[in-house]
Design a protein around this nucleic acid. Structure first.
Length: 187
DNA sequence: GGTATGATTGACT
DNA sequence: GTCAATCATACCA
């Protein structure tokens, strides 16, 4: 399966399929173990209500990055999914660090491996993703997405940190992974 | 033009 | 467990 095949699907279908892929930025990154899906008709989604200046990338071509500032402090990275003109994206919440641990530790200012990429804000900081990367293509340098040898088993759970549509089980995690956000939430 | 609100994290009680 | 930090965007007047 190619990246193009995955991101052409709606974010709800694409989200679990992105688990296990290895995301690299300039050779630094790791295995995706936790994601959340956001759709256009989802009240919790930035795409809800139609295109605006901020969410433009969500309505653009799939396979690109959508980066936004969270709480005025952190950056959060999404993979745009679906079709151009339709707002949808998959939030990358946590990685299992595999490449460039030293670089990530340096950017994060700490060495504890479980704290490098376990959370959307942490992940973006560790990989050096900022608002300048909004709209960047994920299949071109410095970005790369490598498919897993075999799809991992996963669980679906409610999303974290939202107030609307909080019950929808649109958070997908690699079953049993010790690299999930919020310390170590169970599936 | 003014205000309310987060798809979070880290520090503190 | 609770709470402040910090600011761009969104929405209302």
């Amino acid at each position: 399966m190619t990246l193009g095949d995955v991101v052409a699907r709606s974010s709800l279908d694409a989200a679990p399929l992105l688990l296990g892929w290895t995301l690299l930025v300039d050779g630094v990154g790791g295995r995706i173990v936790e994601v959340e899906a956001y759709t256009e008709d989802d009240p919790a989604s930035h795409a809800y209500g139609g295109p605006t200046a901020r969410n433009a990338a969500m309505f653009g071509p799939p396979g690109r990055l959508y980066v936004y500032r969270s709480y005025g402090i952190h950056w959060c990275a999404n993979v745009v999914c679906g079709a151009e003109g339709v707002g949808g994206a998959v939030l990358l919440r946590s990685l299992e660090p595999t490449h460039g641990l030293g670089t990530m530790a340096s950017r994060r200012g700490l060495e504890e491996p479980t704290l490098l990429c376990s959370g959307p804000g942490r992940l973006a900081e560790a990989l050096g993703i900022t608002g300048a990367d909004d709209g960047a293509a994920l299949d071109r340098p410095p970005f790369a997405l490598v498919p897993p040898a075999a799809p991992p088993a996963f669980d679906a759970t409610p999303r974290i940190g939202i107030s609307r549509a909080a019950d929808a089980p649109w958070r997908f995690v690699v079953r049993g992974s010790p690299w999930l956000s919020r310390g170590r939430r169970r599936a």
